[in-house]
Amino acid sequence: MINMDEKNAYKTFRIASIRPDNYRVKTFTLDGALEAKPGQFCMVWIPRLNEKPFSIMNADPLTFNIAAVGEFSNKLHELAVGDKITLRGPYGNGFALTGKEKKVLLVGGGYGVAPLYFFAKKCLAQKIEPVMVIGARNEQDVLLEKDFTEEGVRVVVTTDDGSKGIKGFATVAAQAELDAGGVDAVFACGPEKMMAALARLCKDKNIPCQVSLERYMGCGMGICGKCVCGGQRVCADGPIFPGEEALKENDFGQKSRDASGATKTL
C-alpha cells in the first residue's frame, strides 16, 4: 500500500499580512511555514471556483506574490487578513546549485521575480553572490526591488519604455553582466521568449543556465499532461529545466497549451 504523499494533502493557512506592491500585485504572507525549495510552487485552491499554481516567494512564513490578472487571482485579491488560504504542495523540482558557484546571475521578467527572491536568499545563506536583473514593462511594474536590495543584493533594473533603469529587455542587461565576466550560472524566470533568448546566450557562452517554465496546469501531479512542454511535464519534471534541455523541446519559447490541450503560439 502506498501512503498518501504529504505534498498532495490540502493544508489550510490564514493570511497574516497583505502588502500591496503596485497597482495589481500584492504580497500575501500566511500564518505558517512549508518545507520548500526556491523554484517550487503550490496549487492554491478556492473552493467552488478553481485551483491555480503559484510559485513560492518565501517558505517560512509561507509567502506568495500575486498579480491580479484574471478571475482567480482577482478573487485572491479580495481576501483580507485572517481569511483562509488552502493549498497543496510544494510541487516541482526547484532551482539547483552545484555548490561550486561563487557568483550567480538571476534574471526575472515581469511576475517572474518572486521565486528568484526566495532563491537569492538561499544563495546568500550559502555565501554565493547573487546579482538580480529585474525586467519590467515600465517603472510601475518593477517588482520587489526593495526586497532584494534590503537583503544586500545588487539589482539591475530594465524597463521596456526606459521609465526606470536601462531601456530594453532584461536580456540586454543580462548580456552585459555576462560579458563583464565572473558569472558561474544563470537562473531565470519570466516570459518564455526571454528565457529562450537567455538559454541560447548561455549556451553560446558555455555558462550553465536554469529556466523556470510556466504552463496551464491541471493536476499538478504529473498525470493529466496538460502542462507538457514537448515531452516534459512542467509540473513534475520541472518547472525548472536546464537551458540546454529546454532548448531540445520544440515547444520551448514557441508553443503553450490551453485547458483543452490545444496548442497556441506564445
Binding site: M4, N8, E51, K52, G218, C219, A259
Partner: peptide, 18 residues
C-alpha cells in the same frame, strides 16, 4: 472541450480521484 475546472484530481490514502 475545456473539461472541468480545477481541482480535477485529488489524492487520498488509497490513490486518487479524478
Amino acid at each position: 472541450r475545456k473539461g472541468h475546472n480545477n481541482p480535477i484530481m485529488v489524492a487520498f490514502e488509497g490513490g486518487f480521484l479524478n
